[in-house]
Write a protein that binds this DNA or RNA. Sequence first.
DNA 1: CATAATGTGTTGCTTTTGCAACGGAAAATA
DNA 2: TATTTTCCGTTGCAAAAGCAACACATTATG
Lengths: 210, 210
Amino acid sequence: MNTNFDLENFILDFSNSCQKKQKKVFSKNEVVTTYIKNRNQLCILLDGHADLVRYDLNGNRTIVEHFSKNALFGEVFYTITTNNELLVEAKSNCTVLFYIYDDIFHKCKNNCKFHQTLSENLPQLILNKVTDLNMRIELLTKRSTRDKLLGYFSLLSTRKLSTSFELPFSLTDLADYLSVDRSAMMRELKLLKEDGFIEKVGNRIILLYK
Amino acid sequence: MNTNFDLENFILDFSNSCQKKQKKVFSKNEVVTTYIKNRNQLCILLDGHADLVRYDLNGNRTIVEHFSKNALFGEVFYTITTNNELLVEAKSNCTVLFYIYDDIFHKCKNNCKFHQTLSENLPQLILNKVTDLNMRIELLTKRSTRDKLLGYFSLLSTRKLSTSFELPFSLTDLADYLSVDRSAMMRELKLLKEDGFIEKVGNRIILLYK
DNA sequence: CATAATGTGTTGCTTTTGCAACGGAAAATA
DNA sequence: TATTTTCCGTTGCAAAAGCAACACATTATG
């Protein structure tokens, strides 16, 4: 994509200029927002890490998305079809900007610079999110736990431009992200080590194949 | 969402007004586009049905997305990370508009009405796509074939506002869409019938529970 | 209309995954 | 630092899903 709007600097420059937003700070494990109760919300994660989490009727926990710096999230990205509440949980201390989506979309009355630039660049920002979601779908459609793990590792490896990288999750959370049973995943990790596909040192994975 | 931009009428009104697009017609089973070879492409399906399909190394076929009238697709929504080509296959006769995304984004020089309206409404269009993808992720994170089937049926039921609806897929394709083995899915369908969750008459499903 | 191609429905067997449980390591907290 | 909580790593067993094969139905196609 060519128009590489620099969200980070943009936010630094303008995040204090608009009246129609809220900026809040959260500490680890606090609930940042919920999607059923907070409609039409668009949030930007300025700092920290957070997960979008769902619990199903059987008590399974799913990490629907994992957010890091500059991630966009909020109910505007969802059409809630089930009764299961979606929670955004802070995984570390977080700073979050909250908007009402319509305010961005219809521009705020003040016509502030922040809103103007944001709405101009919104297609690109949302498009980035679409590509993230498509990567996630690619992972989830893989048929076996092994392929999910290898697919995820290869993705991290591509992002870090290195065959060696830290997992951004605990292994427990990784299982919830790949939507598999934790113990089965651990078993598969062991097999991947035994079969010479990976090495694992603490939280660091080293890809050996190819 | 409040801004319900009427894509259909918009396209009817303006689809002939812009020079920077191509309109093509495809017949069933033809390849509409491929994502590795055609970068920076944004397409709108004016008519018909088409699937975005990927084949993995094991020969498994996955229906990544199912497109119907007014769907947006194209490489702009993807960051190709694997070597697996993604194909859009026409499932019926299709009419498709092709754009170069940058042309939309940077507005075309002619400043035509079509481009202007489209780029104004692009955030909303892409946002609709995001909600579709999130629904797909919700389906794929379900842990069992049974839950995937019930989840998908409940989704169709919500869309049609009826507990009785036609499947938009053949059963073979449905398995590829839910990312499960076809015969295992057939077995589960039988069990769902036996357990009184559904009835199935030809291609029509009737939800019985609740 | 005959024939080919594709889709449906089923089943036995194998493999993978999930579940439950546990001990010990590591990290958080009082 | 003592203690609680969370996470890691492992295993036996049960359940679910995948694979392969087949017969039959339905739909395209020459």
